[in-house]
Design a protein around this nucleic acid. Structure first.
Lengths: 337, 337
DNA sequence: CCTATTTCAGAAAACGTTTTCTCACAGCGA
DNA sequence: TCGCTGTGAGAAAACGTTTTCTGAAATAGG
C-alpha cells in the first residue's frame, strides 16, 4: 500500500537521492560546511525544501554523542521555588541552544535516584535540585550522574559544583529582625524532615539560641505547603510565641490565612516571617516580611555551571553560596505589650 | 594514555565481551526476553553489574524509533496557569514512563514555531499550549507537529485533538454574578492581544452586552501579569466602573494591591473578579472571586490525548471543552450606593 | 535410528545522522 | 609534459542499540 511509503519519515537519504548527490554532501550542506560546490548546495537545499526534510535529532545525537539537553530533577513542581529555579535554568539554557527535560519526584525520595539516573541517560547532564535522599545515597549516586550540578544541597564530594543558599544565616537574620522588634518568644515552623535546607535552618537557629539566650524558641513541625501553615495555627497559639518564623513563604501565607480566620491581628498580636520571597509574598495582607532568595539567578547560575562542565570539565568545580536578604514588610512589627 | 579508555562509556559491546556472549544476547537479557538460557542470563547480569553498565538511551531510541519523551511548549513559564498545566502533563506522563521536555517561548510568538518544531524533532509528540501565533501560521505548522495536542486554542483543523476552556462563558458568568450584585458599570481588563483566550473572553462579553443592554461595559488594555493589573488602577477609576473583570487572577491581584494602596475598599467601593483560580486566589485580601479552571486536570487530559495518539492514532480526535466554575469569594459584593 | 521440528545463540542489518577516509580531477610549478 | 598539491565529492565506518535472519544443536516423533 501507499500507506507505508507515505508514513515513512523523509530522511537524509531521500534528500540525497532527489538531489542526486551523496549523503555526505547533504549533511555538509545542512551543517553549513562551506567546502561544497554552490550549485550542489542549491540542489540539496531545494530538494530538502521540496521534501520538507526535517533532520532526525536522535540520529544526530547518536553520531555527535550529545543531545543538547539537560535534565532537571526537582522534589515538587508545585512549589514556586522549584518553578522559579526551573524557569531560570530553562531560559538560560535556551540561550545556548540547550533544552530542559524535567523530572518531578513528588517528594518521594526513593524515586529521586531512579529519575536522576534516567534523566542522565537521556541527557548530557543533570541538575539535581534539593534532593531529599540521604547523604550516603547521594554520594553513591554522584559519580554516575556526572556532569552534575547540585542545587540547594551540599555534599562531601567537592568535585561536584554546588549552588546553595545560606538558609542558616537567613533564618538568623529574620530572627534577629524579630528580636529587634522586642519579641522574646519565637516559634519556628519546620519544613520537610528530609530537606537539607530545613536542617540548615535548624542549625542556624541553634546558633541563634546561643547568641540570644534570653529568647525562648520553640520548634513546631509543619511542612512546606500552604496547608501546613494553615494547619499549624493551633500549635503557634499554644506555644505563646509572638513572632513566628515560617519554613517558607507558602507556610507563612497559610499561617497568615489561618490567623486571619481566627481574627488574630498580624502584626499587632503576632508577627510572621516567610522565606524565599516568592512573587506573591509582596501581595499578601499584610505583605510578608521574608528572606529573599534570588531563585531565578540560581537557576541561571546552575546552567552556567553546567555549561562549564559540558565545555571541558577540567576546571575547578565552584561552590557558590547565596546570601538571603531580609525584606522588611508589613507582617512583622513590635511585640505586643 | 589510559584516559581515553577510562573515559569511554561502557556499552553493550563491553558487557557482551565480558560475559563471552553476543550483543544480541545481552540485549535480550536486558529487555527481559525469556528465550535465553538462565546460565547465560546470569553471566550477562553479573557482567553488566561489574561494569556498571547503563544502556544508552539515544542508541535505544534510534533502534526503537521512539524517545519516550514529549515536548510541552508554553508561552510563559512564570505564569501559574502554565506551570499547573505543565505539572499536570508531567505527572500524568510519568505514570506511563514518559518524560517531558519543556520549551518556553517567553511570549515571543515568532519563537513558537521554531521551538515547537525543534521539540517535535526530539520527541515523540508535542503539546502546544496557548500558542500566540496567528491562525494561518498555526494551520501551516500543525501537520509537521503531529502527533500534536492543542491546549487553550482551537483551530479549523479537526484532526488535532484540542482541550479548551470556555472562557467566553466563564467571563459571562462572572459578569452575571456582578450584575446580580447590582453593578451596572463594569470594566474588563484585557489580556495579551494575541492570546486566543483573550479573544474568547471578548466574544463572551459581546454576547453579554447583547443580553444586558442596561449594563455599561468598558474594555481596558492591561496584560496578563501582576504588574499589568497594578498599573491599570487609574484606568479603572477613570472608567467609573464599580465591578472589574480582570483578565486573570494575576491581573486581579495586581489590581487589588493597587486599589489597596489608594485606600479604595474592595468590595465596598469596587468589586473585582479574576480568572483561573490559581492556588493563591483563595488567600488574597479579600479572597478573590474567580472562575475556576481545572488546570491540573487539563494537563493530565492533554497527556491522555497524547497517549491515545501515540497508541495507534487511528482514533477519532477528541475536542474537549472545560467549563469554568464561578467561585464566589470576598472580592465581590453589592454595588455601592 | 533417522528425519522433522523446535529452541536458542550469534551474525548481521537496521535506525539516521556525522565524519573520516579515499580517490578523481583540476590547477600549478618545474 | 609530468608530477605534486589542493579541492571537493562519494564511499564507508562509526555512534549504541534492537531485531531479523541464519544456522547449529537438541528434542520429539515415527
Amino acid at each position: 500500500m501507499a500507506r507505508k511509503a507515505a508514513n515513512r519519515r523523509v530522511g537524509i537519504t531521500d534528500v540525497a537521492q532527489r538531489a542526486g548527490v551523496s549523503l555526505a554532501s547533504v549533511s555538509r550542506v545542512m551543517n553549513g560546511n562551506f567546502s561544497v560546490d554552490p550549485e550542489i548546495a542549491a540542489r540539496v537545499r531545494t530538494a530538502a525544501a521540496e521534501l520538507n526534510y526535517q533532520p532526525n535529532a536522535v540520529g544526530r545525537s547518536l553520531a555527535l554523542g550529545k543531545t543538547d539537553t539537560i535534565g532537571v530533577v526537582v522534589p515538587d513542581l508545585a512549589n514556586p521555588t522549584f518553578q522559579g529555579m526551573l524557569r531560570g535554568v530553562s531560559r538560560a539554557a535556551a540561550q545556548d541552544g540547550y533544552r530542559v527535560l524535567i523530572a518531578d519526584s513528588s517528594e518521594v525520595s526513593s524515586e529521586e535516584s531512579i529519575l536522576a539516573g534516567e534523566a542522565r541517560r537521556r541527557c548530557d547532564g543533570v541538575v539535581l535540585c534539593a534532593p531529599r535522599m540521604n547523604e550516603a545515597e547521594l554520594e553513591a549516586l554522584l559519580p554516575s550522574l556526572r556532569p552534575l550540578v547540585l542545587v540547594n544541597r551540599s555534599t562531601a564530594d567537592t568535585q561536584t559544583p554546588s549552588l546553595v543558599v545560606d538558609y542558616g544565616q537567613g533564618v538568623q537574620d529574620l530572627a534577629a529582625h524579630l528580636v529587634e522588634f522586642g519579641h522574646t518568644k519565637l516559634a519556628f515552623l519546620e519544613g520537610p524532615e528530609r530537606s537539607a535546607s530545613n536542617q540548615a535552618r535548624l542549625q542556624g537557629l541553634e546558633k541563634f539560641r546561643v547568641d540570644h539566650p534570653e529568647v525562648e524558641l520553640s520548634i513546631l513541625p509543619a511542612g512546606s505547603s500552604f496547608e501546613a501553615g494553615h494547619g499549624s495555627v493551633d500549635g503557634v497559639l499554644e506555644s505563646g510565641a509572638t513572632g513566628v518564623l515560617a519554613f517558607n513563604d507558602l507556610v507563612a501565607m497559610g499561617l497568615l490565612s489561618g490567623l486571619h480566620e481566627r481574627g488574630i491581628d498580624v502584626p499587632g498580636e503576632i508577627s510572621v516571617t516567610g522565606f524565599d520571597d516568592i512573587p506573591f509574598a509582596n501581595y499578601t495582607t499584610p505583605p510578608l516580611t521574608t528572606a529573599a532568595v534570588p531563585i531565578n539567578d540560581i537557576g541561571e547560575q546552575a546552567w552556567h555551571e553546567m555549561r562549564r562542565l559540558l565545555g571541558d570539565g577540567d576546571l575547578e568545580p565552584s561552590h557558590t553560596t547565596f546570601q538571603p536578604e531580609v525584606r522588611r514588610r508589613g507582617s512583622t512589627g513590635p511585640a505586643a505589650g
